[in-house]
């Protein structure tokens, strides 16, 4: 699993990247009440908006950590947004993207680097 400074995580399986927000981000947001996931088929570029996650008091953009085509969105979140709080780095994933460039993945932080980054906040 890799991480960004905007608190997204990416897990790679073949050329399919599963994307979500980190446990730290979920904690900071508070109770998640709604997630706007992208439509499958949409092409996203790294750094662009991929999804929107809403708590009661804030709406935050989730950026695509990598470029590619969205092949699946986590439909279960529409009925159970609390999954993002309960299992942020598991069942609370947002979308799956077919990766265009694997080097993008490799350039992201690993767990140790992300943890070190969190220490600086």
């Amino acid at each position: 699993m890799r991480f960004t400074k905007d608190h997204e995580w990416v897990a790679l399986d073949g050329d399919v990247a599963t994307i979500g927000i980190t446990a730290y981000a979920a904690e900071q947001l508070g109770d998640v009440v709604f997630v706007e996931t992208p439509e499958p088929g949409k092409t996203v570029k790294a750094g662009e908006g991929l999804a929107v996650v809403e708590s009661v008091k804030a709406a935050s953009d989730v950026y695509a950590p990598v470029s590619g085509e969205v092949i699946e969105a986590n439909e279960a979140l529409s009925g159970a947004p609390e999954t993002v709080n309960d299992q942020p780095e598991g069942a609370g994933w947002f979308a799956r993207v077919r990766l265009a460039d694997k080097a993008q993945y490799e350039s992201l932080m690993d767990r140790a680097a992300y943890d070190a980054f969190l220490e600086t906040l």
Binding site: F34, E54, S55, V56, K57, A58, A59
Partner: peptide, 11 residues
């Protein structure tokens, strides 16, 4: 309320 101006501002 996240639809509204006091939270979403320009969005």
């Amino acid at each position: 309320s996240t639809r509204e101006q006091h939270i979403r501002r320009e969005k």
